[in-house]
Structures are given as C-alpha cells and as structure tokens.
Write a protein that binds this DNA or RNA. Sequence first.
RNA 1: GGCGGCAUAGCCAAGUAGCAAGGCGGCGGUCUGCAAAACCGCUAUUCGCCGGUGCAAAUCCGGCUGCCGCCUCCA
Length: 496
Amino acid sequence: MGLRLYNTLNRKTEDFVPLADPVKIYTCGLTVQSEPHVGHIRAAMIRDILMRWLSHLGYRVMALENFTDVDDKIIEKQKEQKRDWRMIAQDNISTYLSACDQLNITKATFYPRASQHIEEIIALIQRLVDGGSAYEKKGDVYFRVRQFPDYGKLSGKSIDELVSGARIAPTELKEDPLDFALWKAAKPGEPYWFSPWGKGRPGWHIECSAMSMQYLGETFDIHTGGEDLIFPHHENEIAQSVAATGKPFARFWLHNGWVTLTGEKMSKSTGHYSPIKEVLRKYSANVIRMFMLKTHYRKQLEYCCERLDEARAALASIITFLDNVTQRHGEAKPIPEPQMLNEFTDAMNDDLNTSRALSVIYELINRGYGVDEVKIAASVKYYLLLLGFRQQVEVVIEPYRDVMKIVAEVEEKLNIANKQKLLDSMKEWFYHRIIGIKHVDELYPKTIAFLLQMRNELRKEKDYELADYVRKRLLDNNIIVDDQGIDASTYRLEVK
RNA sequence: GGCGGCAUAGCCAAGUAGCAAGGCGGCGGUCUGCAAAACCGCUAUUCGCCGGUGCAAAUCCGGCUGCCGCCUCCA
C-alpha cells in the first residue's frame, strides 16, 4: 500500500498518485507583518515531513513556500512603527528562516514573495477581468463569487449560509457583499505599483494563485497550510485559479490543526502566541520536533512547558538507548531492520501518522536491550533520521574546555591526597594517549572516558568523595554518568 | 444564528466494527557505595452521556452534554 493522504477537498483519505515527476507542492507561508510563532512552525514541520517522506518513497519533490509581504496589516505596521514595510517583512522572514534552519526543517525549493511577483499577479487579474470573472470599480478589482459554481466546496459552506452570516464588510464598491478584492487602489502614503486599473497593490489570496501557477503550473499535486486558511483564503484561491484557467487547481489539500496556548488558538493578531525565537532558547530542535510529531498533524496541539518537558523525556529515553549501545559496541550506521520497517512505513503512509511511527521506534527499543541491540540501534537511528531528527553528533566543542578543567581539578586533588599511583597513570594518559588523538572530536569523548576510568579507580579504593566529585562536575557540564558495574561506566549528554 | 472539528488511563496519544498501540508519570522488584541507567512486573473489564443497528461497536446511526474553531486578519 502506498501513501494515502487526507484531502480536505472531499474529506476523505485518498491514494496519493502524483501528476508527474517531480511532485509539486505549494505551502501557504507567512504574511510577514509580525514575528513567527509555534503555529507557523507546525505548518512548516508538516511540509518538512511530507517532503522527507515523499523523497523516501523515491519521488523527486519541488516545493514552494510563499511569503505574503504586502497586505493591509503590514501597511498598518509601517504606519505604526514608522518603518518601511520592506524592512518589517525582511526581519520577520529572516527570523522565520533561521528558526526553520535550526529546527532542521527541509528548505522549500523556492520562497517566492508577493511583492516580487506583481507582474504575474496583474496578468492573472487581467485574465479574470477579460473572462468576466472580475470587475474594476474605482481602481479596485473584485472577484465575482456568485459566478463561480463550486464556491464553498473546500470549506463546506454554501453561498447562502455565507450571506446569512452577514459578517462580511459591506462595501458600496462591491456588486455583491461576497465578492473579494483582487487589487486594491492605493491610498495616500501606501506602497503601490502601476496597473491597468491605476496605482495599487494586490489583495490577499491572488498572490498564491499567481505564484503557484508561475512555478508549478496551473494544476499541481499538493497544497498545504493551516486549517484556519481553508476559508476564505484557500476557497478564494481555488475560485480565482479555476475561473482563470478552467483547469483543476491543487489536487490534494492538506491542512494542519492549529497550535493552542491555554486551550485557545495561537494567533498573531490577538497577541496570543509564543514566538518561536523564545521557544528555541528553552528547548532544542529535536525536542520541539518530538513535541510536534507526537501528535498527528491534523489534531489540535496544546503548547505548554509540560508537553515540551514530556517530549524531552520521551526523546531522552531513545537517546540514552542509542548512547548506551554506542558505548558498548561503537557507532552504528543507520540501517533499517526489515522486521519493523513495514510497520513504520504503514504508519507514515497512513496520512503521515508520525505518532504511530514513533511508537514503532519504542517497540523496537523495548525488544532491543540485550538481544540484537546493535541492529536495533541502527534501525532506530534510521527512523529518527527519516523523521528529521538531527544526529546527536552535534556535540559542541564548548563543554570540552571544562572537561579538561575537571582533569586538572582531579589532578590537584590527587596531589593533595598523595595518591601517587593514580597521578602517575594520569600523567601517562596525557603523555601517551593524548598524542595518539588525531582530531579534536576524539579528545572530548576520550577524555571523558579517561575521567570515568579514573573515577572507577577511586571507587575501587572507596574514595567516594572524589568519585562523586567527578560525577558532579561532569553533571555540571550536562554529562550524566551511569555506572554499569565497577569497571563499566558510561556517560550521556543531558537532553535539552 | 449558520457550518465544522474534537471528547480514549493521573497526563499525552494511536486505534474508525472482532479480545484497548505507544509515551510521560506512578508503584513494586532485580542490580548498586550512593545516584542514575537498564531490566522484570503492576498501573483503562473500558473509550463524554443516553438510546439504536449488528453475532460483534471506542469504531456505524440518532439524540444530548462539554471544549475548540471557521463564518473578519490568521499556519
């Protein structure tokens, strides 16, 4: 069984078969009027998982993620902050891209910006005007919603319901209150571009149609984004695209559930959100990834420290297993073990069920200790990489200085205590072992291993005070010591 | 008001008809100088409530309750 994806278009899980090679994906990215938060990252994470899994299945992937960098809100910000809208946009885009980078989120093939595609946008609007789907009024251009028969299909709304909702801002310029703006005439002081309808700027929605058509063609495979975009944004995208081309637009619509904070949806307009920048200060990329993948992407996800701490604990048990196996048998290459590969694959093929996929990893570990642990570690590593976790190799050089300091401290204490034999072995280690080290990366684990060996000598001599001191000092540097008997102590890095 | 989603153990979370995955936490044990890790065992006779269909329901149908959201800018 191949990949199946839940398609919002008909509320069913369907077999995914791409139109052609490569698979073409469009993700609705940010409107960049304010800083990116955890909710935005979740949407990016879904694109990442989708891209990784498609690649794993052997597809080539072309993915676009847009930035809507000119709209009403950002113009408001410009007025408020007295800063050029382009600067505001660039700041938020930089923050977002650097967070994605830290989080090991696969880069989209291209990140098009609305403001850099005005020509294409104008051409598309012109096409709609020429075809009778849109009309100009005093420099604005509106889309005729009632002329599009399938309007509401994606969001499950009927035009009549929308009218009775009556929350739509009435504008005397619109022929019908349901019509939406494709182009907005510029007011004094606002950014503008020249168009057949005068000075103005694009409305929200049209940029996504124009840019996706430009790079992916008039029909493409998958469109992703947050659930909150279904209406009106994605509904409008479909209407204006299909009205212009007469062809189907995106074939699959994937929508992720939102991230909540104290039970309520994160939203930048209400200020009820956690900026990703802050979250990254407290938790590592792998922990944040674990937090997100533990829940299926279509479900609501509550953001709070307890959830993040739990994700950290869940991740730590996997990492500890891998560390233990590595220290017993050496570094294992990530190779899938056929036994559980089917289960993992089934889970991922079932609408990217990462929660189930993770449980496969735990089941492997549970059966892994003792028997076949090398094979199982190799397999676990393989799955972690598929899910986008970073290898633990990202050990920083920074703690290494302190490790050397600890060696010096121990030396001094041994000196005071008159432990000549241990001092000698210490010196020997330095003069002989250390010279054999070819790379600084080796120095770090080898020095720790030496400290553990030294500590075990102390334990044999029942000098628990100094032995505990070594353990304590290593812990200060996030290195946890596990005694597996008097001669076999291992260490692991505390998961942050 | 209209439309939609969700409700599974202390917490998180899979499961959409055939004996209720997994994680976190907790408890007991083995190991141990201590600690930790690891291992073993236990931790939902029941899936928000009430009815219905079926040999069989967490899963399908109807009703109710609660929470969240969309209908206005939103990932």
